[in-house]
Write a protein that binds this DNA or RNA. Structure first.
Length: 520
RNA sequence: GCUCCCGUAGUCUAGUCCGGUCAAGGAUUCGUGGCCUUCGACCACGUAACGCGGGUUCGAAUCCCGCCGGGAGCACCA
């Protein structure tokens, strides 16, 4: 239901009312929530402002994709504005901002077909956060704490106040000035919110608002040394940027409470929040830091390596962003954490591309096979590009008498009669194919009989193919002659293998034709 | 440990707010059959679910209580 999902903190209703906010409309029986998406609380078409806030530490992945598409969905639904706000505060040792990721993410957004109405960088806005800190201090809502991080943590767990909590407003203002002017070094002082040390939720006790960092920021260098933490920076920016609804993953619900607390303190009306649970794709190990390490070290083939499961890697595999959008939106805004098999995404993509994707023959780990008694008139054949779609036309395939067959097929059907699909029947030898050897098979008949059907590639004009798998492994194979015309980024279905996408450059690039495996 | 969130078939999801129209709908997977000269597509059929225990009620997936299970937070990260 819309209200509960928008207001995970139960008392927000009351607070809204207390702050003069609008009474949530709740027409009985009205649940216009197409596709499982509730109405945004108090949304006025044309006046909704939303924001996406990725942290620039790597390429966007499927989880980020959900954030993108949910925001885009509501933006379209309410004809609203959607801002991109890079959450590039100073971060930490383990979470560092790096310049290259700004463009990378901008590229990902473009790939996803989402054009933000405006782009902001948190790091440009730090100076705007300071006056807000003063406002909070003047309301008696914060104090400067000089406890070492460890002590601070212990006190928080124990519900114990540190001596500085008793600071007067004037003292805090002085201390704050000292922080800003360099009177404290990194780690020596922080500005903390005065919530309650006895708050039942230990996570909520006097959280840190600002801290000192002397790190070099890739965009603004050493311009600032006092940096806000995520919660405070959003308490400011959500208001200053006029965000009307905050849509974020449920990992940030505690941050909602922080923002609401600050806004209430300052008498500001809070925009409602809306969340969704964690989405994991079973096959995808969504560790951004692992991907980061592997990309940096060169173990991965950049951020488009299939093993990253990044948006760009999915694109490279021929999985369309439209399919990804359908996929991510199909889960609605459920708060449950879910794990979905990649097959569900593949099914979505198949729906979109199957009818328009040409078929091609490809054999992995090829074995050279000469067919004795092969009919002379079948040196080449015309085959439809798609079994059900005549309008996709035909291609010419060079055929016998010499072929490449997949080693797996040759071994599996050794000594048996098989049908070369769309061609003729042959009898395979019992001999096991040794490396570099040509096997002898025998033509048996032409008529279509119920035999195991194998893909084949005629030797003439055959194309060497390099198939990159989802696991990052490359498979050498041979594809039919028609692949000589493969265009960059064209998608094919390799029969009995799966959907693949041609890499940038297509067949024009020297060497084997490079393709990436998409899905079955 | 404390706080919050979540629990409907193998996997997702609709339904839960406002109890009956739900002996629970859809998607995907799986199985069977059909069809097309792919292990893909399509068609048909099928298997399969309200976490557990109490309570309220004529009636509970839906309301209440207790439990169990899963996840997240308790960073001077985002």
């Amino acid at each position: 239901m819309a209200e509960i999902r928008s207001l995970p903190v139960a008392e927000l209703d009351d607070r809204l009312a207390a702050l003069g906010g609008p009474e949530p409309e709740r027409p009985k029986g009205s649940r216009s929530a197409p596709e499982g998406f509730p109405e945004l609380l108090g949304a006025v078409p044309g006046q909704v402002v939303l924001r996406m806030a990725p942290f620039p530490s790597g390429a966007l992945h499927i989880g980020n994709g959900r954030m993108l598409f949910v925001n885009q969905y509501y933006r379209e639904r309410y004809h609203g504005r959607l801002l991109l706000v890079f959450d590039d505060t100073i971060g930490s040792e383990t979470k560092r901002v790096e310049t290259e990721f700004f463009d990378l993410i901008l590229g990902d957004l473009e790939l996803a077909g989402i054009r933000p109405d405006a782009v902001y960088y948190k790091s440009d806005r730090i100076g705007r956060h300071y006056p807000w800190a003063v406002r909070v201090i003047e309301k008696g809502g914060a104090y400067v704490c000089r406890c070492p991080a460890e002590i601070l943590r212990e006190n928080r767990a124990a519900g114990r106040a540190c001596p500085e909590r008793a600071q007067t407003v004037a003292e805090t203002l002085a201390e704050w000035e000292k922080m800003l002017s360099g009177g404290y070094a990194e780690g020596e002082a922080v500005l903390r919110l005065r919530t309650s040390l006895t708050d039942p939720d230990p996570a909520f006790r006097d959280r840190v608002l600002f801290r000192i960092s002397e790190q070099d920021h890739p965009r603004v260098g050493h311009t600032y040394r006092v940096w806000p933490l995520l919660e405070f920076s959003w308490a400011v920016d959500d208001i200053e940027l006029g965000i009307t609804h905050v849509l974020r993953g449920k990992d940030l619900v505690m941050e909602d409470r922080m923002q609401q607390y600050i806004w209430q303190l300052l008498g500001i009306r809070a925009p409602p929040f809306l969340h969704w649970g964690l989405l994991r794709v079973r096959e995808a190990k969504v560790s951004k830091s692992k991907s980061y390490a592997e990309v940096k070290s060169g173990q991965y083939d950049g951020w488009a390596d299939p093993r990253t499961w990044s948006l760009r890697s999915l694109d490279r595999r021929g999985i369309s962003m439209a399919a990804l959008r359908e996929f991510t939106l199909s889960f609605g805004l459920s708060l449950a954490d879910i794990e979905v098999p990649a097959e569900t995404l593949y099914a979505e993509n198949r729906k979109l591309i199957d009818a328009t994707t040409a078929r091609r023959s490809f054999v992995a780990d090829p074995v050279h096979v000469a067919v004795e008694g092969y009919p002379f008139d079948l040196a080449s054949v015309a085959l439809p590009n798609h079994p059900d779609r005549a309008e996709l036309g035909v291609r010419t395939a060079f055929a016998g008498p010499t072929f490449y067959l997949a080693r797996g097929d040759v071994e599996r059907f050794a000594g048996q009669e098989v049908r070369l699909k769309d061609l003729v029947n042959i009898s395979l030898p019992t001999e096991r194919p040794g490396p570099g050897k040509t096997l002898s098979a025998t033509f048996t008949s032409r008529e279509n009989r119920k035999l195991p059907r194998l893909q084949w590639v005629g030797e003439r004009e055959a194309v060497a193919v390099d198939l990159l798998g989802i696991d990052g492994q490359r498979t050498a194979g041979i594809g039919e002659s028609a692949l000589r015309a493969a265009r960059p980024r064209e998608t094919f279905q390799f029969e009995r293998v799966g959907f693949v996408r041609v890499e940038d450059g297509g067949a024009a690039v020297a060497g084997p034709l490079k393709v990436v495996y998409g899905h079955p």
